[in-house]
Amino acid sequence: MQYQKFKFNGYAIPFQDFIPLLKFLYSNCNSISSIIFKFSEVNFNINNYSLVEECSTQMIVSQHNLKKISFGIFYNLNLYNPFLSLKNSNCSNTLNTIVFYFINFKNIINILREVFDHLNVLESIHLINCNYLNSNFVQQIIKVIKPFKLKSLIIHEILHIESLLLLLQKCGYYLENIRYFYTNVLDDNNIYLIIKNNQHNINYLTIAVKFYEYDTVYNELSSTVLKNLGQILSPKLEYLCLVLLFNTSDLEIFLKNSQNTFIKKLLIRNIVMYGDGDGDFNILFYIKKYIMKKERVKYLAILEEDELFFPKKEVNEFKLYNIIVQKYHDLCIYNYSYIINNYLQY
């Protein structure tokens, strides 16, 4: 039997069904080129963990033409043997893409170098909201002899800036997609240093405050972003998404500082804080002045209390300047689905 792609979603398949399915596939299919593992511990009894790990490992080892693989949300499942099997399988000369999604690297930290040095044609590595990206992780990656081609780095906070900067010294040249979700650390300027040092190869950038965290000081965080970001952007970006509490004075600073940057897709989500006088709902005037009239974007989405997309008069005005206004959620790139659709598809 021949399949090009296998997507295993542990959320959707009951345990009693997927183990027989995995056994059938690794016994009968050896030409799968793309495997996506996405596990949920809620479907597993702790006594079944070893069986899940064994079947996942066998699934990888049985393949002769595996080119792309994604490990997602392993929780208490041990990734050690499935990951190590990449070294011991037939894919050392075929595997070109690996995605790690919500993976804790603690259990595989000691085999990172060993495995990556056996992958001879690896072209694309993606880290999405992973844990244990500390000095131990970075030291293992630095020791990897082959290029570590990190294309996507999506993180919610920077805990080990020195280690992260060392990692980017090794692989920052390859980085295309960086997304950072701000916490409540007001003096965290590390993200700007990372962007500045890698500005010429970053094409996709998202910076957002966690507006569902009630203790976040939205106005100070947002002000810090708008005052520091514009001047370090590259001359051309494919995608910029800002989820902030905007005020017009800081927004104008950002727009002036970034006036030499063309952005293909610009998304602005202005956080609405009822009862807070720091936000501003009159940002459209500045968007028109610095973005629309200078034709600095191709696609635009703005979400405040209402969408910019719905007043057709506004949409038509932007169209006169060759700017296409879209719905925010239609234009927004969602991390996991974007990586899967763009790097694990044929």
Rank of each mutant, 00 (worst) to 15 (best):
I19V: 14
S70V: 00
E213Q: 15
F6Q: 02
L153G: 02
K170G: 07
L244Y: 01
F211C: 06
N65E: 14
N88I: 05
I161M: 10
T206Q: 11
S152W: 07
E123R: 11
S258T: 02
E252Q: 14
Q199N: 15
Y346P: 02
N78K: 11
L175A: 09
Y3T: 03
D117T: 06
L51W: 02
N45F: 12
H200V: 06
N342A: 03
S56D: 07
S124F: 01
G277T: 08
L95K: 00
I103R: 00
L84C: 00
L153N: 00
T224S: 13
Q4C: 08
K67M: 14
I36T: 13
K38R: 15
I287S: 02
K319T: 12
I283P: 01
L242P: 07
F83K: 05
K67R: 14
Y338E: 11
Y299D: 06
K319W: 02
S135N: 15
S62K: 10
Y338D: 14
L344R: 02
L240V: 08
I323Y: 03
Y343S: 07
I109T: 12
Y192R: 05
F37H: 08
Y321N: 10
K289H: 10
R296I: 05
A301F: 01
H156C: 12
E304R: 07
K210G: 04
S222E: 06
I339T: 05
L51A: 13
V325F: 01
F39R: 03
Y182C: 15
N93Y: 10
N104T: 08
S40N: 15
Q345V: 12
I145H: 10
F262S: 08
N90H: 15
S34L: 02
F318N: 02
G277V: 10
I36K: 13
I60Y: 07
